[in-house]
Design a protein around this nucleic acid. Structure first.
Lengths: 233, 233
DNA sequence: AACAAAAGTGTATTTTTTACACTAAGAATG
DNA sequence: CATTCTTAGTGTAAAAAATACACTTTTGTT
């Protein structure tokens, strides 16, 4: 990019950053991935992975880049959440943050986490530590968004393995919505969408009846969506 | 604000702007308020009212300020829409836009519009002119959002007078959702929310049976919302 | 007085949602 | 190898919500 200052306007500019709320699911709880800050301000406090947006990338590209840099995550489902622009949200200077939320398979992730140098950790939604900046607020907004989204978009599948059982899926929905769901009604409804495919395979080494695995056809879902289909739970 | 350059980082920064999609309703059609650009780029093209964000204001404050400056609008219902950050969305330089959408009473507005110096005009959604920048896309996103929002939040009332008839309200919903709605079922449902209050007053000077006016109690709605109530159409 | 035009009203049918309890399968135990 | 433990898996009836649908009323105009 050119370094000449032939700006359209020459007001001082806020810095532009992204922060991402990374959701995961450990089979029982919805969790958020946080990184511990190495320097001031908020040294040693936990924070959302984020950073500044470069001139030659969109905010979404920045969020994805930073997810990889800070948490070793690639190819994750990511969606814009909200832009936070309170004047004093960063004590150093004016920073406007375009927040994103990501849904990742926590199991898959734990493998590649070792590579990264920063300290990162999963926290259950009810066990969040004190957070830096306005990140607690960002997480609250993200949880609300996730709750709303889950019932009219099949986002839940991003949080599970490619093969999953219906009890797993139900537990996930219960965790996100924070309410119990009737087993029979849940199955009826989720199967009636026609988006879940039963596999031959079943669970192994469980001390009870083994549950059947299912898979979700993302490609077919996208096709159907184009044709006006609407998922709804 | 200080002018010293003690920045946390010294990358070049994108400029930060807001653009607002202003929705109105003329009794038959949903419309968008556009301003004609006075200078390059896109001179004489129509565009969303917008402008740069100052250092001492949030993006929402900026959007509201610009609504007043560019269209003479005060106290409007405004909500964040999405942040657009394509690198080349402005031919001059990198500008990231936090877009908002506003719902205004178009009748009320037409009175105060005269004061403003800029040329502004309402356009029906199906008669939009060629637009500057990526503003056509922003409007598309805003329409989608409005469609989604209308059925689980009583936003429609922002577009009408304080007193309105049920046929007016129905026409508005039909215009937003772009589908016909059954009169009896619509009345049943909207009245069952308990948020509409019949007034004594009726229409005058209409060449047919006069419709009763109703009002919507915004205050009560907010109260109920806090107590867990959920509007739904 | 007759007409035109839109407001206002109720019911029956269909669809969707909800509530609910037992049998089946697999591993662990004695 | 029989018993026990634990969770998977299944159907139906009742209640609630959504839908389809046609005539009477009111007001101004001719």
């Amino acid at each position: 990019m050119k370094k000449e200052k032939k700006y359209t306007y020459d007001y001082e500019r806020p810095a532009l950053a992204t922060d991402t709320v990374i959701f995961g699911f450990d089979g029982a709880q919805v969790k958020v991935l946080l990184t511990q800050r190495e320097r001031e301000p908020f040294k040693n406090k936990w924070a959302l992975p984020g950073g500044f947006v470069f001139m030659e990338e969109t905010t979404e590209q920045a969020a994805k880049r930073l997810l990889q840099e800070k948490a070793g995550l690639r190819n994750v489902y990511i969606e814009q959440l909200y832009t936070f622009s309170e004047v004093d949200r960063d004590p150093r200077e004016r920073i406007v943050a375009v927040a994103y939320y990501a849904l990742v398979n926590a199991h898959q992730y734990e493998v590649s986490a070792g590579r990264d140098t920063l300290k990162t950790e999963w926290f259950g939604l009810s066990e969040l530590p004190k957070l830096a900046f306005d990140h607690a607020r960002i997480i609250r907004v993200a949880i609300e968004r996730l709750k709303g989204k889950v019932s009219y978009q099949p986002v839940g599948f991003e949080l599970l393995n490619e093969k999953f059982t219906l009890p797993q899926l139900q537990t996930l929905y219960e965790a996100i919505l924070e309410m119990p769901i009737d087993k029979r009604n849940f199955r009826k409804k989720i199967l009636s969408t026609g988006l879940l495919f039963p596999l031959e395979e079943k669970e192994k080494n469980v001390a009870h009846k083994a549950a059947r695995y299912y898979s979700f056809d993302k490609r077919m879902y996208k096709e159907l969506t184009k044709k006006g289909f609407h998922f709804e739970l």
